[in-house]
């Protein structure tokens, strides 16, 4: 089966938005996961709850809140437009923001578990060898948490690929800009007489999902193996 230009367009946008979403949430995701894994502070449960909110809220609510905050009239959005001339709603960047927010808790969860499993005694040993906190993190903590980083990134990417509710609410459903696979499929279902096209997209979604699952399993197994070789005796 050969793909039509609109189908290619949807795949391209899905991958672009998925990758962009993962790229922007990685730095804050790593920082937050480390913060939660290594420090005790008042209100930790509240911070934890807020981070997990997108997992339990209806995605439409998240999209609406993003619109309120980042829309051109929104508090942050108005500032972004005034200072940088940037407007996020109705753009693919906006879609990346929306799917990133939805994927954020999955990344933080997996990474935090992995960071908590890193022995603080190794970090203390590194400090006595003259390594600053930052160097300890970059050379000891994060490398030992790579399995969690891989799992979290793959989960977040899969979540961003399939994001629908928050994206359509915040970034709308614009062909060639924010119409990813799920949105294209939704559009076809709404259009009478396009059932076969919808079925094609449906199959395509299944194929892409399966491929990314297999890739993620393979990657996870590989990193686990490499770390086990190191620990093996």
């Amino acid at each position: 089966m050969t793909l039509s230009p609109t189908e290619w367009e949807a795949i391209r946008l899905s991958l672009l938005i998925g990758l962009a979403a993962v790229a922007w949430i990685l730095p804050p995701g790593i920082a937050v996961a480390w913060w939660l894994a290594r420090f005790e502070f008042r209100g930790k449960a509240l911070v934890d709850g807020l981070i997990h909110l997108p997992l339990v809220l209806p995605p439409v609510v998240v999209g609406y809140l993003l619109l309120v905050a980042l829309g051109r009239q929104g508090m942050v959005g108005a500032w972004l437009y005034r200072v940088f001339g940037v407007s996020l709603p109705f753009t693919w960047q906006g879609a990346a923001v929306a799917s990133g927010v939805m994927a954020f808790p999955l990344l933080v969860r997996a990474l935090r578990l992995s960071l908590e499993a890193v022995d603080p005694k190794l970090e203390a040993a590194a400090r006595t060898l003259g390594a600053s906190r930052w160097r300890v993190f970059a050379t000891i903590t994060l490398p030992l948490a790579v399995p969690g980083l891989v799992t979290g990134t793959m989960l977040a990417f899969a979540r961003a690929l399939s994001e629908f509710g928050a994206t359509i609410t915040f970034a709308s459903n614009i062909p060639g800009e924010t119409r990813t696979l799920p949105l294209a499929l939704y559009t076809l279902i709404q259009t009478p007489g396009r059932e076969s096209a919808a079925a094609r997209l449906c199959v395509l979604s299944i194929v892409i999902a399966l491929l990314s699952l297999i890739a993620s399993e393979w990657l996870a197994r590989r990193t686990r193996q490499r770390l086990q070789e190191r620990d093996a005796y």
Binding site: K121, L122, A124, T128, L129, A131, R133, P143, L144, D231
Partner: peptide, 20 residues
């Protein structure tokens, strides 16, 4: 003075070698 600026070497009970 933070640990990493003290220039005091420590050999711990467990060797604490970096596994990676």
């Amino acid at each position: 003075v933070p640990a990493h600026k003290r220039r005091i070497g420590v050999v711990f009970q467990e060797a604490r070698l970096f596994p990676h």
